[in-house]
């Protein structure tokens, strides 16, 4: 059973080895060309893992595939799609592409390139909906073909002061500011997130968004032009079944201005009118009066107090 996971720094050597292995067939198409994937160093590979989203396909303890991508402006640039030569043509390349695209759900456009002679790559990309945009002659032997396809930006909600858009991997730094905000974390009675916790949190929400088409939105303050929080929907399993929670977290300098209410109302309308959900709940840590006020203004009503992870929560509900 092959699983696709984010790569860690410790995977650098194994991925580099696999990359050299997988590019042997490419090298045969471009004799005498120093293809960069063949001469990349471990240090450079580590840098890629640090600075890009690098996925690996794992079979037991062996890495059998990988792909990486980064975001610049609103374009997700995908590269270095590799599959172990022993298991090519069995759909793993497609799975890796689907996984990396899902990680960047919400971008305007995906872009990648391959060599003009790499017919198999070109066929795969065209089957996945990529269209040839331009060619670039790199050397007399190597001509690169650039292909792209439009992203599916997902829903965008606009209110008087806010824009709520799909969450993206490059929101990491801005989101981390929320979860290291001392006032925010005091309200959760939790320690500030470290890098790994923040990665987990963002990864979970991106996966949720990719699966359902919606999730927690990134909240952009129109006046400030910056990401100030998140607000949206999250499917969760409770003892009485699967429910959809409406949640919101804003950085503390933006508290007390009705912004959580404004974002929450937009999400409430989106949930009821556009996705057609019958019911929303909110779990608010008992004693968090600020959050409770926002929930009440959104129209939610306190139903009961429940215990989660040994901590009392107020359970608010609203039915369409």
């Amino acid at each position: 059973m092959i699983e696709i996971q984010p790569a860690a720094l410790a995977d650098a050597e194994a991925i580099l080895g696999l990359q050299v292995l997988a590019y042997q067939s490419e090298a045969a198409l471009y004799p005498g060309e120093p293809l960069p994937p063949l001469t990349q160093t471990v240090a450079e590979m580590r840098r890629d893992i640090e600075r890009q989203v690098v996925l690996k396909a794992v079979d037991g303890d062996a890495i059998v595939g990988s792909v990486r991508a980064n975001l610049s402006e609103d374009v997700c640039r995908i590269g270095r799609l590799i599959v172990h030569p022993g298991i090519q043509r069995r759909g793993l390349g497609t799975r890796l592409m689907t996984a990396i695209e899902a990680r960047f759900a919400g971008v305007g456009r995906y872009e990648l390139f391959t060599g003009e002679r790499s017919a198999r790559n070109l066929r795969l990309y065209e089957r996945l909906g990529y269209r040839r945009q331009r060619v670039e002659a790199l050397t007399p032997v190597v001509t690169l073909v650039y292909l792209d396809k439009p992203g599916q930006p997902g829903p965008v909600l606009e209110t008087e002061r806010l824009i709520l858009r799909s969450m993206r991997p490059d929101d990491f730094e801005a989101l981390w500011r929320i979860f290291t905000d001392a006032h925010v974390m005091a309200a959760f009675a939790a320690e500030p997130f470290d890098h790994a916790q923040m990665s987990d949190w963002l990864g979970r929400n991106l996966a949720h968004q990719a699966e359902h088409g919606w999730g927690l939105f990134s909240v952009i303050h129109k006046g400030q032009g910056e990401l100030i929080g998140n607000c949206g929907l999250e499917s969760m399993s409770l003892p009485d079944g699967t429910v959809i929670e409406l949640g919101y977290d804003l950085r503390s300098p933006f508290w007390g201005q009705g912004l959580a209410t404004e974002a929450g109302c937009a999400v409430r309308d989106f949930a009821f009118n556009q996705i057609g959900l019958p019911r929303l709940i909110s779990l608010i840590r008992a004693g968090n009066v600020r959050s409770r006020r926002a929930a009440e203004k959104i129209g939610m009503r306190l139903e009961t107090t429940v215990e989660r992870w040994g901590v009392p929560y107020w359970r608010y509900e609203l039915t369409r």
Binding site: L16, G17, V20, Q24, A27
Partner: peptide
């Protein structure tokens, strides 16, 4: 070992 194996393979391939 793995790092060196990949690097040699890359350089030899590049050298044709």
């Amino acid at each position: 070992k793995t790092t060196l194996a990949a690097a040699i393979a890359g350089q030899l391939t590049v050298a044709g």
